[in-house]
């Protein structure tokens, strides 16, 4: 199965990125062939709707699961439509999370935060 993880750098030693929509890269990893590729997140610098576009990018990689510390509601809607399951990462380490996922130890991510777009009232 191909999985995706938001990462801070395009290296296997990189940490999991704290943000999904604004992560600079996504690791796309095949748990069977152990092939790894890094995809640039072109949505990261956008002014709004980054989560939606990032989810589109990840979905277009043909992954079956996303491992992420958190995820916004809009991106979660895209993943639901794309039948991509979301799992919550438990450490910063890419390798540890992949291992935990393969062993079936990562919990499903089921709480999503609201979008931030257009909600800046300036107070």
């Amino acid at each position: 199965m191909k999985i995706a993880i938001p990462v801070d750098n395009n290296l296997m030693e990189s940490n999991v990125c704290a943000s999904f929509g604004r992560a600079p890269f996504f690791l796309v990893y095949d748990t069977e062939t152990k092939e790894a590729a890094f995809v640039e997140n072109t949505a990261a610098s956008g002014t709004g709707g980054a989560g939606i576009r990032a989810a589109q990018i990840v979905a277009d990689q043909g992954v079956g699961a996303l491992l992420t510390p958190r995820c916004g509601q809009n991106a979660a809607d895209v993943f639901r439509s794309a039948d991509i399951k979301l799992y919550r990462t438990n450490t910063d380490s890419l390798k540890d999370n992949i291992e935990a996922f393969v062993k079936g130890e990562l919990p499903l991510l089921e709480d999503f935060h609201a979008g931030f777009h257009g909600r800046n009232r300036g107070q």
Binding site: T47, V78, S81, A82
Partner: peptide, 13 residues
């Protein structure tokens, strides 16, 4: 420009 649309699973959201 606002990323208000996505297309997955042959469906426009």
């Amino acid at each position: 420009n606002y990323n208000a649309l996505a297309y997955v699973n042959k469906k426009l959201i």
